[in-house]
């Protein structure tokens, strides 16, 4: 059987992945609402397949200050997952939970980073649960790791990892609405065999 690379996916396969994204985003919004004890709405998430340099452009350009939370997947599916939060998003989380104003990277302290790491973990878990449930696969995630820096620098690690398997990435842009629109990006880099296993389990290969 042929193996599909990320860039070779057909529209049906993309639709199925998009649907996992939708369910995952719903789970994530629910998790966020219970964390913040407040109502959180969401816009329909957008799933795209992008070149690595386009990924950086789509998260606000190489020098955009962001927080990236990195998780490694293992078990039936291996690969990397990265949650990217733009400044409005992490500012809102810290304001809501810790009651502190924080509008740029330099004002993040250890406590803030630890909180964001945990939230990234919960949100990434929301997507992975959707995927695990729909595919029946066991997906474990590593403890989260965090970096707060320029988007391009944060993306260099997944870029180097992608670089070894192909030049394209799967990215889900999700907008939550809590007063204002806040954007997060979920970047997934499944290994080639894992991507194919997922498609097979979903009946589109």
């Amino acid at each position: 059987m042929d193996k599909y690379n990320i860039e070779e996916l057909n529209s049906m396969q993309l639709d199925v992945l998009r649907e996992i994204g939708n369910i995952g985003a719903g789970n994530a919004a629910t998790a966020l609402a219970s964390l913040l004890s407040d109502k959180v709405d969401m816009a329909v998430p957008v799933l795209r397949i992008l070149e690595m340099d386009e990924v950086t452009a789509s998260i606000g350009g190489p020098e955009n200050p962001v927080v990236g939370i990195l998780l490694a997947m293992s078990g039936d599916v291996s690969g990397l997952m990265m949650f990217v939060l733009e400044d409005k998003f992490f500012g809102m989380l810290i304001k809501s939970i810790l009651g502190k104003d924080c509008d740029d990277l330099s004002s993040l302290d250890e406590m803030d980073l630890s909180l964001l790491k945990e939230i990234g973990n919960i949100l990434a878990g929301a997507y992975l649960n959707a995927m695990a449930q729909l595919t029946g696969l066991t997906i474990k995630i590593s403890p989260p790791d965090i970096a707060a820096d320029m988007a391009g620098a944060i993306m260099s690690l997944p870029a180097a990892m992608f670089g070894m398997v192909g030049d394209k990435a799967l990215i889900i842009r999700e907008e939550f609405i809590k007063g204002e629109r806040i954007t997060s990006h979920l970047i997934m880099v499944p290994e080639l065999d894992s991507l194919n296993l997922i498609l097979k389990r979903l009946g589109v290969m």
């Binding site: 020098e63 620098a153 944060i154 870029a159």
Partner: peptide, 13 residues
């Protein structure tokens, strides 16, 4: 000449 070259946001690169 007096050109400037820039490469943005080097991480592990």
């Amino acid at each position: 000449g007096d050109n400037i070259l820039i490469t943005y946001a080097l991480g592990s690169c």
